[in-house]
Simulated scan of single mutants.
Amino acid sequence: MDVEKLKKMVGAVRTGGKGSIRRKKKAVHKSNTTDDKRLQTTLKRLGVSAIPAIEEVNIFKDDTVIQFQNPKVQASIGANTWVVSGAPQTKKLQDVLPGIINQLGPDNLDHLRRLAEQLHKNAPGAAEVATHEDDDEVPDLVPGETFEAASEEKHT
């Protein structure tokens, strides 16, 4: 830390000039426990209940997977609310995919296959072939023409 910056910080604490007393009121630091208590009361209002014995939770988002190992999972089916608490790890889909495939059922496997196809299409270097047969776009106008004149020429 810079000495001049430190002197400025010390000077900002004083109420008067040099030799005067310091502030008597301490700055109160708000703790995160109040936020946690607020969250827990809101979750109680929704009627969530704990779901035991879940070893792993994977949340798929685009080409990444947010993975929780041994999370605390709570759910309220009526409120369509799921709460996953724990330490998340963000990983690429390609790294996690081999370990996840054996855990999926047939419905989820189809969904994962569609996701992989979509990622393959959007991969860098994949060429998109555009067809202009059924293009319903507005044609480019020559400078000086108007839309009305161009549409009259097209219909005649």
Rank of each mutant, 00 (worst) to 15 (best):
L39P: 00
R38G: 14
S49H: 15
F68D: 00
L43P: 00
I59N: 08
E56S: 07
G11K: 04
P52K: 12
V13C: 15
P71Y: 04
D63C: 15
F60N: 04
T15V: 15
G47L: 04
S49M: 13
A75C: 10
V65E: 01
T15F: 08
G17I: 03
S85N: 13
K44H: 07
S49G: 15
R22C: 08
A50L: 15
K18D: 12
N58G: 08
N80S: 08
V28L: 13
I77R: 13
D35H: 09
K61H: 15
T15C: 14
L39Y: 02
M9S: 12
I77W: 10
I66C: 00
V83Y: 02
T42M: 13
G16P: 02
A53G: 05
K44R: 12
S31F: 06
K18E: 12
E56I: 07
G16E: 05
S49I: 09
G19D: 04
M9K: 11
N58H: 12
T41K: 12
K24M: 05
M9Q: 13
N32H: 06
A75N: 07
K72D: 09
D36T: 10
I21R: 10
A79P: 01
A79N: 01
T33Q: 09
N32D: 08
A12E: 06
L39A: 11
V83W: 02
S20H: 06
R38V: 13
G17P: 01
S49W: 12
V48R: 00
R45D: 09
P52E: 14
R23F: 02
N58R: 11
S20D: 04
D36M: 11
D63H: 14
L43V: 02
V84G: 04
K61C: 15
T64Y: 13
R14T: 14
L39G: 03
G16F: 05
V65M: 01
I59V: 15
K44F: 05
